[in-house]
Nucleic acid binder design. Structure first.
Lengths: 195, 195
DNA sequence: ATGACTTTAGAACGATCGTTCTGTAAATAA
DNA sequence: TTATTTACAGAACGATCGTTCTAAAGTCAT
């Protein structure tokens, strides 16, 4: 069944621009009008493809995170040591920033006006990256590279730091930011205590 | 010269509630109406004390950060080693969270509609805490406790992590969050590599 | 008590918000 | 070709936004 309409493409463009705007300006700070202008389609047409603003964001976040997880699963086997995986992850997070959407998800979830089912879905968002981080740390324990007493806490802090660094993607020079991503892994690995 | 008017008090109440709301819901997500309801004063009255929403936020951020800096300067001498200072700082940041306002400041500064002078002022916000962190690390180097090749980067990452942890103040249980603050210092100090 | 000034509430404004409705040109099916 | 469905634009809606205006009540000096 061939389609000559190219509605899917339009939907993709709207989704892409919306994700960008949400990442930069937050949920409340991004209007449908903004999305309309950035995508080049009318405001009314955004509603042809997406039920409302909240559902649009949830779709973006869920789909983005799913794609993120799949992409990481694809490249992860290329790195053999836990140490390498950790450095690779830091670069991966920087170049495939779904994490701003995580923060925006927190913003939405914190708003009392947000529907409970949406909040529920948003809380599940962080599971994908956290699981990926946790897997690396566990792998490092198994290979004897790492010594970690509190896996969950370590995972959480690592994710928190990487996520926070992503906030600077739109404002900081790429090379400098990349250095900071590397350095956070360095710090996690070795600390600063004199030995 | 005694004053029987107590306008200063209402101004303080409005400022306090506004800071709380901005921290929780962000700049765009907080309306003057919200602030009016939370403080118990009319919407118009908010404008009697503050010129507009933007100026209100800038005042809150600047004043809050100034108070934060003074308070830390007051307690800092109680801790003798750099290590102790670092742990003390993590607790201090958690209990005197001005850092959510830092994030909201980023949100405001990222918005093209924000006036340039406001953006300028907001960029200066992070200087106070960063200087405080940097002082601790430098102190640790001087006492021989720490070995740090990139002071600025280390400072930035430490501030980033603490700031990000503050985001969970309204959603996470206090004791658990406190554990994470402690643990981030642990990690910065020692890392996870097996020795 | 009177008049000046400060502090407050509340109505009102235009702009913009998220959303819905209406109309229409293009694509497909008959 | 005609009828139906799909893909869009754009006007319009009520609600809420940040902000301003009006006016009354409270406080103070005289």
């Amino acid at each position: 069944m061939k389609r000559h309409y190219d509605s899917e493409e339009t939907r993709r463009i709207i989704a892409e621009k919306a994700a960008q705007l949400f990442s930069q300006k937050g949920f409340a700070g991004t209007s449908i009008s903004d999305i309309s202008k950035a995508s080049g389609f009318s405001k009314g047409h955004v509603y042809y493809h997406f039920e409302n603003k909240e559902k649009l964001f949830v779709y973006l976040a869920l789909d983005g995170m799913r794609a993120w997880g799949e992409k990481w699963a694809g490249v992860s086997p290329n790195y053999k040591t836990a140490r390498d995986k950790l450095y690779a992850m830091s670069t991966f997070v920087m170049n495939n920033y779904q994490t701003p959407l995580l923060k925006v998800g927190q913003e939405l979830a914190a708003n009392p006006a947000t529907s409970p089912e949406t909040v529920q879905q948003l809380y599940g968002l962080a599971v994908t990256p956290m699981q990926a981080y946790s897997d690396i740390f566990q792998y490092g324990i198994d290979t004897g590279e790492f010594e970690i007493d509190d896996l969950q806490g370590t995972t959480f802090l690592f994710g928190t730091l990487l996520g926070a660094l992503c906030q600077h993607i739109y404002t900081m020079e790429h090379g400098q930011l990349h250095g900071l991503f590397r350095k956070s892994v360095d710090l996690f690995l070795s600390g600063i205590l004199k030995r």
